[in-house]
Design a protein around this nucleic acid. Structure first.
Length: 596
RNA sequence: CGGGGCGUGGCGCAGCUUGGUAGCGCGGGUGCUUUGGGAGCACUAGGUCGCAGGUUCGAAUCCUGUCGCCCCGACCA
């Protein structure tokens, strides 16, 4: 390809809309153009990158025996009703675009394809003899993000690879799951990325085991915790740890302490010389569930710890056997709306009476009480006395005489000790999620009634797995991780072009002739090469080639009349003078490994 | 959804406080010079100042509404 024909449009100034470096560089290099919020056109340069990523993915998955397909994007509401996801996905914080056709039939614009593929497979596969099946597609997905941002990182329309596997039993699912994890390692390694694989929450998709692949980068949206030995890694939503030991409260006669205007843990500690880990923090939440009911929740946790709302939400949905649509702290407005303004915020105890809810207009009349292990483990503690300006001190759980469900709903933090080895500590870093694999189990096959006949002749729901890769996000993550002050430094395997040839001075026929010759030769050797034949000054061409990040640069310049060109590596910045034959030979060998 | 900020040629911005109907840099076009790190000079094209009302003799500027974009938050009582 010749740059004069490439529709290249680079910008010197940073467009005001871009905040993070990868977004800025993609815009400045002319890789993407924004059509509207969170919706981008992939320009020819980026499309080449996306195709290269796609090829790597297809090759790896094909090696694992996966089939490729292309599924509908417009999906009928019925199958989403059956799986129980229509409401959570279209209402509230729902992320599915939905619409009605002229008959009034409701359709969703696919954010993911579990329902569709389950339906299709159940129509096609009937016997255990046909299993397992592992099938994938690469196509555009739609998500109505509350707040699209960072260019392709969180956009409303994006390219995703999603794979779904179907099995006759759980152990077969597990073996495909680890096969896929292995394929993912290969894919991201081939893409030239630094990444980690961490335990993850399975979120709205549901299911058992789930892991995420994270490209480590300062601007990452996810907080991940990794043990110093690298054995354990998890998204903070999911991470578990051993809590730091606290300075425990001595045992003493339980009593009531006057604590006027001491509503926060901090105020309580500074006024009475307590430690946060001697106090039980009690928080009130309201959870909105699938059955349209609102459940008030009382959460107890050790004062120095933070509630993990993902864990909390999962726990509630397990207890109530309901999908939790929304969970948030109870606000003063909530309390007023319900007509129950007698809740002594700042002085709550785990044993806050249900009687306070008796006048509630729409809320359930009973608190669901959950205590984090950190609070439950305290032998003697301080907590609110459910009366303004009063706390209990030297109390224990049997004195409180209250029913509590105990579970881990605490945020693991950097510095906490690890479960697998107490001598290891967790450290935190940020990551960009580019892949996510799930063992779904039978959740979708059951709800959609997708079954096969097993070897005993009985009908049984499929065991399912699903596996995603954000293709367009991966491209941007690669930029976030590989750039310098001059621009992008694409890993060779996914670079839009492997080599760019610059003709320093278009008026010099020696340079032109030599460049053209190398250009032809490299193309004959199947090197993906770009020729900058624009009638521009050399400096501008250098700037552009650095900005768009082509890994190798050949310059036909000063030494052209002695048959020499300059070969420059974008990443190492090493430059050497070579003749035509050596340049072609060197580059052909450089790229040979991946061209069979 | 809450808070903050911004909408002025393709991009980045000034002008707005104190109304008098647009300007700078980059980019585009033409010509000459230049030619290894975003060239110089000259000429030139391109904007109903997001949109709709209102105030005024007169609005980019003041007021109201609306749309769009960006950032932060939606976490501890």
């Amino acid at each position: 390809m010749r740059v004069s024909r490439l529709m290249l449009s680079t910008l010197r100034d940073v467009p005001a809309e871009a905040d993070i470096i990868s977004h800025q560089l993609l815009l400045r290099g002319g890789f993407i153009k924004r059509l509207t919020g969170g919706i981008y056109a992939y320009m020819p340069l980026l499309w080449k990158v996306l195709k290269k990523i796609t090829l790597i993915v297809e090759e790896e998955l094909s090696n694992k025996g996966c089939l490729q397909t292309l599924l509908p994007q417009l999906q009928p509401s019925e199958i989403w009703e059956k799986s129980g996801r229509w409401k959570p996905y279209t209402e509230g914080e729902g992320i599915m675009f939905s619409l009605k056709d002229r008959q009034g039939k409701e359709l969703g614009l696919g954010p993911t394809h579990e329902e569709v593929i389950t339906q299709i497979i159940s129509q096609t596969i009937h016997s255990y003899k046909q299993l397992p099946i592992n099938i994938f597609q690469i196509q555009t997905k739609f998500r109505d993000e509350i707040r699209p941002r960072f260019g392709l990182m969180r956009s409303r329309e994006f390219i995703m690879k999603d794979a779904y596997s179907f099995h006759a039993n759980e152990s077969d699912l597990q073996s495909t799951y680890s096969d896929m994890r292995n394929a993912y390692q290969n894919i991201f390694t081939k893409c030239g990325l630094d990444f980690v694989c961490v335990d993850a929450d399975s979120g709205a998709i549901g299911g058992a085991a789930s892991q995420e692949f994270m490209v480590t980068a300062k601007s990452g949206e996810d907080l991940i915790l990794i043990s110093s030995d690298g054995i354990y890694g998890a998204n903070q939503e999911k991470a578990i740890s051993i809590i730091p030991e606290g300075k425990s409260l001595e045992k003493n006669k339980p009593s009531i302490l006057k604590t006027t205007d001491q509503k926060t843990i901090e105020e309580l500690c500074s006024n009475n010389n307590f430690h946060p880990n001697q106090i039980i923090k009690v928080l009130a939440y309201i959870a909105t569930c699938d059955d349209n009911k609102k459940y008030p929740i009382i959460v107890s946790i050790r004062g120095d710890q933070e509630v993990n709302e993902t864990k909390l939400s999962n726990q509630i949905s397990q207890i109530l056997k309901q999908i939790v649509l929304d969970i948030r702290p109870i606000s003063n407005e909530d309390v007023q709306e319900q007509g129950i303004d007698n809740i002594p915020f700042g002085y709550l105890g785990p044993d806050l009476s249900d009687d306070l809810l008796s006048k509630a207009k729409v809320w359930e009349k009973k608190f669901l009480r959950i205590a984090d292990i950190s609070a439950k483990d305290l032998k003697s503690f301080i907590c609110g006395n459910n009366t303004k300006d009063e706390h209990k001190i030297f109390f224990n759980w049997s004195l409180l005489n209250t029913e509590q469900l105990t579970s881990d709903i605490r945020n693991a933090k950097a510095g906490d000790r690890c479960i697998h080895d107490k001598t290891q500590k967790l450290k935190e870093c940020r990551g960009i999620e580019i892949g996510h694999i799930f063992q779904l189990g039978t959740k979708y096959s059951k709800s959609l009634n997708a079954t096969f006949t097993n070897d005993k002749g009985l009908e049984e729901p499929f065991w399912m797995g699903c596996y995603g890769i954000g293709i367009s996000r991966l491209a941007q993550a690669a930029v976030e991780q590989n750039h310098d002050d001059s621009g992008i430094i694409w890993p060779v395997s996914i670079a839009p072009f492997e080599v760019i040839i610059i003709i320093a001075n278009m008026k010099n026929s020696e340079q032109k002739k030599l460049a053209e010759k190398i250009y032809q030769k490299l193309m004959e050797n199947r090197v993906d090469v770009l020729l900058d034949d624009r009638d521009e000054r050399a400096g501008l061409k250098f700037k552009d080639s650095d900005l768009i990040g082509i890994p190798w640069r050949i310059v036909a310049g000063r030494e052209a009349n002695s048959g020499l060109v300059e070969l420059h590596n974008r990443k190492t910045k090493i430059t050497e003078s070579l003749d035509l034959e050596s340049v072609v030979k060197k580059l052909s060998e450089e790229f040979k490994t991946k061209k069979l």
